[in-house]
Write a protein that binds this DNA or RNA. Structure first.
Lengths: 103, 103
DNA sequence: CTTATAACTGAACGATTGCTCAGTTGTTTG
DNA sequence: CAAACAACTGAGCAATCGTTCAGTTATAAG
């Protein structure tokens, strides 16, 4: 691997990492993930909990689903979402430590 | 705290967390941070290492400096940057584990 | 079948982002 | 001093982002 020899991580790794950080960089998405840490929720639950439109939530869930951060379970006309990745919780924990220790 | 009782983290915490993730969500900035993990570097070093303009690097360094991710040391006309936050390295490590374990 | 409800979707919008360009500041060298 | 060099800066631009809006699909109830 040429890139590694020059001291740089290869593009694919960097883009994958950046993408992971990006999902969590939007307050709405991050709040959704934080809420799902506590319990499984349907779209309308999330919308009313965050005070945003049901459409906005739906758009974000599609993204979170595409990046495999959440999984869904259908029950009648409702769709329940829950977290699908235990690393994400670690990530949030470490970041919380970081934010906590700066003024 | 009313928000916490309703099961949501307060706005300030969420925005702080999101901001942290956001800095690392851009491939250019992330590559800079990864490079600085290995050694202290000046602006032109970073620019040539990443293959981007010196101006672009300068703009990003200002941001990284404002968020206290890097510190700088002046030596003649050159400015050497280095990491100023050990939590960031933990964060990257955890994220790497996440990226590594998905297909 | 019709109505109501939950979720999804594409288009369009304003806001933000990261870059380039041109020019400035500060330091060193001749 | 002037010239060269490293870094910084603001304005402007294209691209991306997150939302709203209007409409669709799917399921359930009357």
């Amino acid at each position: 691997m040429r890139a590694a020899r020059r001291g740089l991580a290869d593009r694919e790794t960097v883009f994958g990492l950046a993408e992971t950080f990006k999902v969590l960089s939007d307050p709405t998405r991050l709040t959704i993930v934080l809420a799902l840490q506590r319990s499984e929720l349907c779209v309308l639950d999330i919308a009313s909990l965050l005070g945003v439109s049901e459409s906005a939530v739906s758009h974000q869930m599609r993204l979170l689903k595409a990046l495999r951060l959440v999984k869904h379970r259908k029950e009648g006309k409702m769709v329940f979402y829950s977290l699908d990745d235990e690393h994400i919780e670690d990530l949030i924990r470490v970041a919380q430590r970081h934010v906590g220790e700066r003024r």
